[in-house]
Design a protein around this nucleic acid. Structure first.
Lengths: 200, 200
DNA sequence: CCTTGAACAGACAGGTCTGTCTATATATTT
DNA sequence: AAATATATAGACAGACCTGTCTGTTCAAGG
């Protein structure tokens, strides 16, 4: 049983692992506290001892997901010598993830959709995440193009690649297929190839 | 009062108008039947006489939204003589819409996020919608490029522009700003400009 | 041995949800 | 005028939700 496997770790970890799976697969609203505690094999009192509310659990989950995802992304691109390879690595990371996770798309975007109040801490967290990814694209993936381009052109290039990336995630989720990822990668490389005035 | 204004039309229309506003602004789960009937000034029995369930109301709403959106898109692009202008019209339609509707993104994508079951009729509706938009891009917006390009290249171009489009919507929603739309339009035109072997 | 802390089980309160039902009013048609 | 269709108001059932509370078990440390 799942509970058997999970019982090795401590309650707080079991709760987050279960919540991660359920929030991501079913959505936040559709997942109740009762299901979380029953599937993580934890008493209700223990749950509320660790997380004062369902929303704070969601925040803890997103923070953990954020940390792990950013770390994986940085690891993968750090091993790539060229811009093209780093862009490809970014897409392949996402391709691997979406296949493993059953084409459920981006956990942050999905959560943002369920929290319509833009002042909500969840929404702030999602904005921070997306900003951080954008900065990684600009500073770690495309960095060496920055001094060789007009600043506004560089910004547009970053925006374009980032929109392609998010759009591909949405469409892969929608159609439950991989081709949007591949297409977006190809388009990104095409945009890159015509971004420098002197072609090298 | 809103109910005053709405009372001009018949109950079924009042219900759909209200549901459209509430589902879109608050989300499907977060909107209850009781709020819908009270804000549309309709008795509960009347509601269930017109719509057997909440989900069927959502489907009726999405179908109406689909029809109106596709019609608007076709109208706008029909008036444009060149490819570039048609692509720009597509983005400007969305820009107008997102500003009017308060940066709540795409109603279809948002709904798909709340229905995790891929077999759900809602999910099927969203897939159909996205497919239809993709066909319009291929057959009405970029049509005259089709015979002048290698079929696989043409497909990739359509995919790329479509991913840019969806990504821009997501990011405009996330940041509640317009610049992702502008950036995606610029990138789309850039991709177009290098898609023909002989440049005209 | 005994105390303390952390986990357990599960009843409970108070609220919300969807959907059904009864009963009344109004408007149109025959 | 009578009959029929369609609207109204709102109580109600039954399920589910979050979060609180009581009480039990168990293991580690003084």
């Amino acid at each position: 049983m799942t509970a058997q496997l999970l019982s090795a770790s401590r309650p707080r970890e079991r709760i987050i692992e279960t919540a991660s799976r359920l929030f991501f697969r079913q959505g936040y609203c559709a997942t109740g506290i009762n299901q979380i505690i029953s599937e993580s094999g934890v008493a209700k009192a223990s749950f509320y001892a660790h997380f004062p509310s369902k929303e704070l659990l969601a925040i803890a989950w997103l923070e953990q997901r954020e940390e792990r995802w950013i770390q994986q992304l940085k690891e993968r691109i750090a091993q790539c010598p060229s811009i093209d390879k780093r862009v490809a690595a970014m897409y392949s990371l996402w391709g691997d993830q979406i296949r493993n996770e059953g084409y459920r798309g981006c956990g942050f975007i999905n959560m943002a959709g369920e929290f319509s109040n833009e002042e909500s801490p969840i929404r702030a967290l999602v904005r921070d995440h997306k900003d951080r990814v954008r900065h990684i694209i600009a500073n770690d993936v495309l960095s060496e193009y920055q001094p060789r381009m007009k600043p506004s052109d560089f910004d547009e290039l970053v925006n374009a690649i980032y929109s392609l990336f998010d759009g591909a995630i949405i469409q892969a989720q929608n159609f439950m297929q991989d081709w949007p990822i591949d297409s977006a990668l190809k388009a990104s490389l095409k945009l890159l190839s015509q971004s420098l005035p002197e072609e090298g």
